[in-house]
């Protein structure tokens, strides 16, 4: 999967904005939005929030978890535990990137948040590599991967799955009696 497609999915997440215009309810195919009143917070999908922001029609309210104290706690947890800790948003990486790139002026301590999220990401991806390594060396057939986000899976997907498939082919060719793929 292309990372842009994961980002596309992340753009469906809802985020609060404070509009500076007024507009009636919009009846989208995917659900109703609004009404929009200046100064009153309203929930919209990220794709719309970013578009409105780019046209300077709203201020984006960062999600609750996008906060240095909370993220520091998560970073500590993530470093302490060997397993993947539950993350406040399944799209934390994508949302951080999208919101910080397009609405950094609405997010307090944007640079600190960027660093914290990057730290969390690095720790998690390192764990993912370690577990992929032991998955392969122990020739496991099943693994449970709770709390992993789509973007994290995506970083290793093609490499891990292709290697597993090749190893399977090599092994099944070694064992007589098993049918081959070609």
């Amino acid at each position: 999967m292309d990372p842009a497609e994961v980002e596309f999915l992340a753009e469906k997440e809802m985020v609060k904005i404070i509009p500076n215009f007024s507009l009636d309810k919009i009846y989208l195919i995917g659900g109703d939005l609004g009404p929009f009143n200046p100064g009153l917070p309203v929930e919209v999908p990220v794709w719309l929030a970013l578009n409105l922001k780019q046209r300077q029609k709203c201020r984006i309210v960062p999600p609750e978890w996008m906060d240095t104290d909370k993220l520091e706690d998560i970073r500590e947890q993530e470093r302490k535990l060997d397993t993947f800790t539950p993350i406040p948003s399944l799209y934390y990486m994508e949302l951080t990137k999208l919101l910080l790139n397009h609405a950094a002026d609405n997010i307090p301590k944007a640079d600190e948040i960027r660093t914290l999220v990057k730290d969390i990401w690095d720790t998690r991806v390192a764990k993912l590599r370690l577990s992929a390594d032991s998955f392969i060396s122990q020739q496991e057939a099943h693994a449970q991967l709770d709390n992993l986000t789509l973007m994290e899976i995506n970083t290793t997907r093609s490499f891990l799955l292709d290697s597993l498939n090749y190893m399977y082919k090599l092994r099944s060719n070694l064992q007589p009696g098993r049918s081959q793929d070609y």
């Binding site: 507009l23 009636d24 989208l28 995917g30 719309l48 578009n51």
Partner: peptide, 16 residues
């Protein structure tokens, strides 16, 4: 129309 542009964006996403 502002609303129409929002609808178009949604349609583009579904079409994708």
């Amino acid at each position: 129309d502002v609303k129409a542009s929002v609808h178009r964006m949604e349609i583009d996403r579904i079409r994708f």
